[in-house]
Computed example of a mutant assay.
Amino acid sequence: MEYCSNSERDTEELGRRLGERVAPGTVIAYTGDLGAGKTAFTRGLARGLGVPGQVTSPTFTIVNEYEGGRLPLFHFDMYRLGSADELFDIGWEDYLARGGVCAVEWSENVDEALEEDTIRVDIRRGDTDQQRRISIQGGPALEN
């Protein structure tokens, strides 16, 4: 499904709608340019899961964990990982076993480790500085 976001708020809202519908064990794989809105989408995802507090990019920590919602959220940034082998070194299988939602930025760096039922979210810049074109493949329908 293709969506057009005209603001960061719209991007977060789309993430919220997905967060309200995902099941335990869901993996969401993001692709998109630097600054495209992957973390904004994840902030909305966290809100949809009922996760309290601020959501920030895990660029320097590789993974941020958020508890307190209906499901835990594990927010990964794979930008600095060179291969899927490194993903397993950081305990990927342990995170999957915890029954939360794994949101994976820069998923193309570890794509071979992701399962077929992974929800794919691609975020690209649109016609204006604020506009984003968001493609979501797999997962629940997000119609209002």
Rank of each mutant, 00 (worst) to 15 (best):
D33P: 05
D89H: 12
E108M: 02
R132Y: 15
A113E: 00
T59R: 07
H75S: 08
E2T: 12
R125Q: 15
R47H: 12
D94A: 14
E2A: 08
R16Q: 15
E86S: 00
D127H: 13
N144T: 01
I62L: 15
L71T: 06
S5D: 10
E105P: 03
T42S: 15
A29S: 05
G37K: 06
N109F: 09
P24Q: 07
Y95D: 12
F76D: 02
E115S: 12
C4P: 00
V55A: 03
E67Y: 11
R80C: 09
I136V: 15
L49G: 09
T118M: 03
S83I: 04
D89Q: 12
P140E: 10
G48C: 11
R132C: 10
A29D: 08
S135H: 04
P52N: 01
Y3Q: 07
E13N: 02
G48F: 14
R80N: 10
Y79R: 03
V55H: 05
D77P: 09
T42Y: 06
L142C: 13
E143R: 05
R70Y: 09
I62G: 04
I90S: 04
M78F: 01
I119D: 04
L81V: 07
S5F: 09
E93M: 07
G68W: 04
E105L: 05
E13A: 14
I28K: 09
S107M: 12
G25C: 04
F41I: 10
D111A: 15
V101K: 04
D85W: 05
V104N: 00
L142F: 12
L34Q: 06
D85L: 13
T59W: 00
E2C: 01
G99K: 04
D33I: 08
G99F: 02
R16V: 01
R21N: 03
K38A: 09
R43Y: 02
W106L: 08
V22W: 03
F41L: 13
D33S: 10
G68K: 06
S5A: 15
A103T: 09
K38W: 07
P58I: 02
L87H: 07
A23P: 00
P72T: 10
K38F: 10
G50S: 11
Q137M: 09
N64Y: 02
